[in-house]
């Protein structure tokens, strides 16, 4: 069986690499991007190609296009892929936005264990 495919958007290269490794180690396939714009483009391409994208993990604060905005663009164009947000500053507004999108929100500093649990959970829904 094909391993679940996850798209990961994070502007910090070191964190991006670490998270990709951590997820791949436990058996997921991960596509990484550095910006919100690239996330939107990549998700569209993947879905158009018929790839069964199972989950999108994205940082909230990224330069130019943040994770929330990117997710909203995807939702508005009919993509219903489950979402998982990461943020270092999850204020009430950010939380309510994430909840509106029906997404989980993880606080930074991230624990890999927590991230893996959250991914399992998000994929199970």
């Amino acid at each position: 069986m094909l391993q679940p495919l996850i798209a990961l958007a994070e502007d910090d290269p070191a964190l991006r690499a670490l998270l990709a490794t951590a997820l791949e180690t436990v058996g997921y396939r991960v596509v990484t991007v550095a910006t919100g714009e690239l996330l939107v483009a990549t998700v569209r391409t993947l879905l158009a190609a018929g790839d069964p994208l199972r989950l999108i993990i994205t940082d909230v604060r990224m330069p130019t296009l943040g994770g929330l905005e990117a997710a909203r663009i995807l939702r508005e164009t009919g993509h219903a892929t489950p979402l998982l947000f990461m943020t270092a500053y999850g204020d009430a507004w950010t939380r309510s936005q994430a909840a509106d999108l029906g997404a989980l929100l993880l606080d930074k500093p991230l624990s890999l264990t927590v991230l893996r649990h959250a991914v399992t959970l998000a994929l199970a829904i």
């Binding site: 910090d12 670490l18 998270l19 951590a22 604060r61 270092a88 930074k108 500093p109």
Partner: peptide, 28 residues
């Protein structure tokens, strides 16, 4: 300032913690 500090430190802390966890779990 608080948001900035959180954001600036959140990412490097995640990285440090992640690597440490992976080493501890012998994943690397």
């Amino acid at each position: 300032l608080a948001a900035g500090i959180a954001h600036e430190l959140g990412t490097p802390l995640s990285i440090v913690g992640g690597h440490a966890q992976m080493i501890a779990a012998r994943e690397v």
